[in-house]
Design a binder for these strands. Structure first.
Lengths: 213, 213, 213, 213
DNA sequence: CATGAATGAGTATTCATTCAT
DNA sequence: AATGAATGAATACTCATTCAT
């Protein structure tokens, strides 16, 4: 209870570990079976603890789902936070966004899958909306900002409308991971197309032109 | 009552009606509560029949979900089938696609919501994938075709790659209906942006220009 | 309705046929799955009629079971009735009884199996007891009679007590068909043993003696 | 309460107790209503627990039936095991077998009734056959052994064939408990008859002679 | 912290039976 | 005589949650 700030007692840390393990197991099960097939017993079994123990750490299923949502949000924030790319050109910043998503697609597909489930659920669950909504909103706004800067700088089309264009980019990426044939190569083609879709056609030099490599 | 002589007997017609009513109720409940909260009892209650009667018409929950998927597919086919727009210019055909989606957004949002649930589920349910996959594939291919024609005709950008561009458009529309603030006005802005994203910048006349109304 | 004695109208005969078909199907299903797994729907399906039609002919499941019991009783009576063996020696009559059972074992095992189910059920179902009890009682009494005559005639042991001896024979035969390895050859050995068990040891001539290797 | 140190914790012992209580209740219900009328709800109610609790201890109905079968086997083994009668004469050993069955008839009729149900069921349930088959086989073989020894020692008829004779004895006893009028007195008469049926007629002294007491 | 046992409310499915046609 | 549709009452089994230890 009166633990020092910098060194929480082992027991408490262990408790956090348990929660993390529970969140991980729950997330994996959501990916495998959806919310539909999410059972507290299965989570407990996967963590290797008793159901009662699970309920000790996470009192209700609702709290558990919130935990998963937070866990996902935290993991995504890790990637997006403090990248300090403001000094880059808007076009370069956009490419960085694509890189980020490519990385997710390559190494953390399960995260994207789980996120998609959360997003779907958020339509009817206000609590979920409160968690996922800001997350998605932040992403969209970040891209919107980059686009607005790019329009101003002349990197992007002068007639580009940042808000719907950001929706377009986010939708294209999100939709990509939802569709079949979501191969790395196909993502390369997609990002190239997205790049072309926003860039200023009046720019003299055109890097990596042509529809196919 | 004044049915033609060749009409099927009332009992059999009634059976089809019941199935349709069941499909409709199930679809509505999926929209309201997701697959997670889909209960056969609730469906029966909404249709106004006994649970046993529900099972008389649709033997298992799995069959029921397949029925819903088929029902949705049938309704979507109605809209897309036999529109005979091949004589229009690619740009006009694309606008028609946007019109179609706008119509869905306006009058059949529930259909889109349900479809999104099916799509999500299809990731882990092969049966669902077998139903939804072709549906989405057909849509994407149709747009891809329009884009390819438009590139050839000069309507669209010469450097446009039809496959990823079609993914982009589909993703943008699908993603739009999934996001908050999916107002008709926002869709207008989105489709305008999408139009600009694909059109040939070298074309002299530019219809409905400018980023914001 | 006013049909002549010797030629009932086709419709009524057909009705009897239906009942017979129902009884046969029910009996077969009892053999396959026991009373436990007996479903009216399965019976109807096997007969090739609608469940409602089944209920038209046999109003309740209870009546159906009674029908099966009667059907079995009738078939067994066919075999035992009017054989007119009173003129034979008791020993010969007993062999005839064994022959009868051997025939059942060979050609109508299903009948015996069904009968065993009925017998088991009769323990807790008075109606069944009312049907099966007399049947078994009659059989036992018939054998008891033969044994008593044989004791008097000197064919069988002088110290043979007809009542328990009849129980023994009936039990041995019934038990045989219930046990595994109920092969024809094993029944031959059993009947030989039963014959030896009751015969008068003081009789001079001994047919087919020895246990067999 | 004053359990020794090495005793298992109360909770675990309690679990075994529950299983035993469940097995007992299930057995009683099988006797009363047969497998046909065996309902998990009734068992739970009789034990005084919730249905969910029943399923906690015994996951499926199939497992429950297996539990009952094992329970019956265990109880029967108690009686037959380690009686150490090898030093007795074959005739005396056989009488002991009759005594054992008489005891069952007198004090554990329910056990015999349940066993008969299991036996009936074993015809169509391989799992049941795997449990009941060996049980009955062991009994038969034990008697067969006694008979073979008795033939060798001169206690029993020289022309007695142990295998069918054992079948006869087992069938007679089993059949006795299945038939009506299974009174203790009638069993006395039956065992006397069985004794006479196997004994060597050439033996000088004849205990308890005469057909009726 | 952890767990074995317990449970109320449910969950899809089944079954014998009924009824309008 | 037959049937498609309908149903009340089960039926085995599940699930999130609680509690004594």
């Amino acid at each position: 209870m009166n633990a020092p700030v910098t060194a929480p007692p082992k027991s408490r840390e262990s408790s956090e570990d348990r929660k993390a393990a529970i969140a991980a197991a729950a997330r994996a099960l959501i990916v495998e079976k959806g919310f539909e097939g999410l059972r507290t017993r299965d989570i407990a079994e996967r963590v290797g603890i008793n159901i009662a123990t699970l309920h000790y750490h996470v009192p209700t299923k609702e709290a558990l789902i919130a935990l998963v949502a937070d866990d996902i949000r935290a993991e995504l924030r890790e990637q997006s936070d403090g990248k300090g790319r403001e000094h880059l050109s808007p076009a370069a910043q956009l490419e960085c966004e694509f890189d980020d998503y490519a990385e997710l697609l390559g190494e953390k597909v399960a995260l994207l899958t789980a996120l998609s489930e959360l997003l779907e659920r958020s339509r009817r669950d206000p609590v979920m909306l409160g968690c996922v909504g800001p997350m998605m909103g932040k992403w969209k706004r970040m891209i919107e900002e980059i686009l607005a800067q790019g329009v101003a700088s002349g990197d992007f089309r002068a007639d580009l409308d940042p808000d719907p264009a950001a929706r377009m980019l986010v939708g294209a990426m999100t939709g990509f991971s939802r569709a079949p044939n979501a191969t790395p190569d196909n993502f390369k083609r997609l990002r190239a197309e997205l790049t072309r879709a926003v860039r200023n056609p009046n720019l003299p030099t055109l890097p990596t032109q042509g529809p196919r490599p």
